[in-house]
Design a protein around this nucleic acid. Sequence first.
DNA 1: TTGCATACCAGACATTTGTCTGGTGTACTT
DNA 2: AAGTACACCAGACAAATGTCTGGTATGCAA
Lengths: 207, 207
Amino acid sequence: MSPKTKPGATRERIYRYVRKQLEVGLPPTTREVQAAFGFRAVQTAREHLERLVHEGLLVKRPGKARGYGLPSRPSSGPPPTLIPLLGRVQAGGLNEAIEHVEDYIPVTSRAAKHLFGLRVRGESMTGAGIFPDDIVIVHSQPTAENGQIVVALVGDEATVKTLRIRRKRIELHPENSAFEPIIPPPNECSILGKVIEVRRVISAGKR
Amino acid sequence: MSPKTKPGATRERIYRYVRKQLEVGLPPTTREVQAAFGFRAVQTAREHLERLVHEGLLVKRPGKARGYGLPSRPSSGPPPTLIPLLGRVQAGGLNEAIEHVEDYIPVTSRAAKHLFGLRVRGESMTGAGIFPDDIVIVHSQPTAENGQIVVALVGDEATVKTLRIRRKRIELHPENSAFEPIIPPPNECSILGKVIEVRRVISAGKR
DNA sequence: TTGCATACCAGACATTTGTCTGGTGTACTT
DNA sequence: AAGTACACCAGACAAATGTCTGGTATGCAA
């Protein structure tokens, strides 16, 4: 027989392996755990898994293939998913923007498939605490309300501004007195979505 | 026989169901798909799934239980996970702060287990673009470098400030001239971590 | 009309996967 | 020494799950 390990040491390693598999959506079978640890008997793997269930570290759907799982997730909201961070949005609009995906960013939102991220380029919104290189998370929608911060496509360039709705016209206002409002011709402006969140990565010494 | 649906309509609904299951880490069996859609034959479900594989919307491990999956994740980084958002951090430090978990927020980081979120309460850091009700994401560590924005425990209250290291003393500087630097006695201040990201949820009309 | 594509059903079989029973070996405690 | 807890092995069986073959029905195009 193989030499045995200290009580609990193998189980800890198995827990880590199983947790990692579960976190990437690949629940393992008992035989996969067996193979991963080089056991010669399925029952060895099974007993470790059963002990982890007994300790409350795993849960299990009895009799179901790949039935071990993690206990209830800490949050009652939707699971975290990734949305695209777009490098640029130009004339083609969102349908063609997919080619310019710079990265993906994590959100918990039921509306995730309607969200995209956009990197802020200028200083026109610093009065609203939105700075260059910040990322805005945008809910895709063709309209928004007066006073909301939106991403609008003007001509062939996307911009982040505060929406002001006048009688038969919209204006795109900066939140920085060094910039002028944009008053686009009607057919040359469309709203891509509403800004719902701002994120900034802080590097050492920055600001 | 049951009435049939338009070409592609059922498959679309099946794709959505399977994707949702996969995203929460619960890959379905063919029979679970069959049951979910009220088919009387397993083969019906199987054919839809096989077509989705053929279209590239799903991938599959042949012969394996619960073997359908999503194509390679869009990002090559770590999967999104949740970290705790702490409502308060007081005298007990992080070990006791778990009782004050206000929510969970999504991150993609290999260091997720060292991260926590903290809600910003005052206006002392507005010069750095950090406003009340913003959330700072903090990397737990007992030290930081000069000039970095940190969360420090002073007495029994946590605060977000810029760290200034003098000879044998640390100072906690605001980024707002209406506030004075904090120069805490040596045994009454500890660094909980370094701020690595700021997030702000934007509500309608806010700011 | 036939052929094709798609959506659905029915039944059987093969393989994977979970589960159980019986076992050895080591270390520690009573 | 016996008993307990834990770690490991071996083999068999039951159930879940994947796969295949044969089929009906509808709509559309040639």
